[in-house]
Design a protein around this nucleic acid. Structure first.
Lengths: 206, 206
DNA sequence: GTCTATAGTTAGATAGAC
DNA sequence: GTCTATCTAACTATAGAC
């Protein structure tokens, strides 16, 4: 792990950044307050001074990570654009987002896995669910109008999410299985910005 | 002596089964030896009697889980079958496998995420890598022969793996986002056995 | 706000009786 | 083989000086 000190920020910011780095790699249970303190270049006691408990510190990190993972994406599907263009824009935006924050998905997924309903109730707003339903309706309409072939809209949604997210979640395994080095893998991810939407669009052509 | 309950299994087997259940949900760091002992209906000390340490017990569970995740799948691509049939067979087999062991992928992925090279060296045999390269070559050939459209074989491999695995890895999130209940989600996974290969095959048509 | 020192808990591992 | 009791280390959290 990268243990470089985070400096020229307020102590609170340094703690948050350090906590992010540690939690995201080790998870809640695996993270140690001492390690976060070291990474922030401060003392353990100060962590509690700023954030009362490990739990509370984690909450803040998780909430923030989760918030970054979806917002603005649903919005794309409400724009007045051709259907296929929306898919292009969505996949490009999503993949770009995750290229910049590659640890986010596996962090959110594995923490959620341990405590699904709890985390979900805490962090998912009803509006988000509404906009997801809205996307589903658009898929269904497109199929009905013959714009795309008949396909269960939920399957289409699963397929799109899978193609965007999994190469990042599964990277430690996939990269080693495919025996490519870091640079090559990053290039593959760059290329996916275009190739994934092409793949999807051909797959749903009538 | 014969104080065993329902279980006609050996103590060792009961421990392994309990450990599997606990590790798979909580991960190595989150799991507690006490919880495993409780789940197995035995004492903490007995865990150490059978498996020296938490580390060793975990090793055994992880090795086994990992072993179940790929084997036999690479073999499909060495059979004398039409190319598209191989893809069908692969996705069907994979999805069926994961339907039966839905916790496997996220367990393997999140543990691997914390310690990639270590785990990889311990658990990946060179033959597996060879057969993966072999699959890659088949993709490349199919593209060259014009059987499928030009596509980077590595991207195709990423796409196939993503479509098969992610809906299981991401289930806690996806299911809640899409607001479907357990039964419906299982039905969706059943349906994917067919629909995923159809999706892929159309996407790579020349 | 930041530190040192320490209290309080928990969890992995071992000793020893049966 | 299985148990109870206990040791030891690690970790979260707090007290109190500066």
């Amino acid at each position: 792990m990268d243990n470089t000190l985070v400096s020229d920020q307020s102590t609170e910011q340094r703690i948050l950044e350090a906590a992010r780095r540690v939690f995201v790699v080790k998870g809640f249970a695996g993270a140690r307050m001492q390690e976060i303190a070291d990474a922030a270049g401060i003392n353990k006691a100060l962590l509690h001074y700023y954030f009362r408990s490990k739990e509370k510190l984690f909450e803040q990190i998780f909430r923030e990570a989760f918030g970054r993972l979806l917002p603005g994406l649903a919005e794309i599907f409400s724009r007045p654009l051709p259907f296929f263009r929306k898919i292009e824009l969505f996949t490009e935006t999503y993949i770009s987002l995750v290229i910049e924050q590659p640890y986010l998905p596996v962090f959110v997924l594995s923490e959620m896995h341990r405590n699904p309903d709890d985390f979900f109730q805490k962090h998912i707003q009803p509006e988000m669910l509404a906009s997801i339903r809205q996307i589903g309706r658009q898929f269904a309409e497109a199929a009905q109008e013959g714009l795309i072939r008949p396909i269960d809209p939920r399957q289409l949604m699963l397929n799109i999410m899978s193609l965007c997210v999994f190469p990042f979640v599964g990277r430690p395994m996939l990269q080693r299985m495919m025996q490519v080095n870091d640079t090559e893998y990053q290039q593959l991810m760059e290329a996916r910005r275009q190739s994934v939407s092409a793949f999807i669009i051909q797959a749903i052509q009538p």
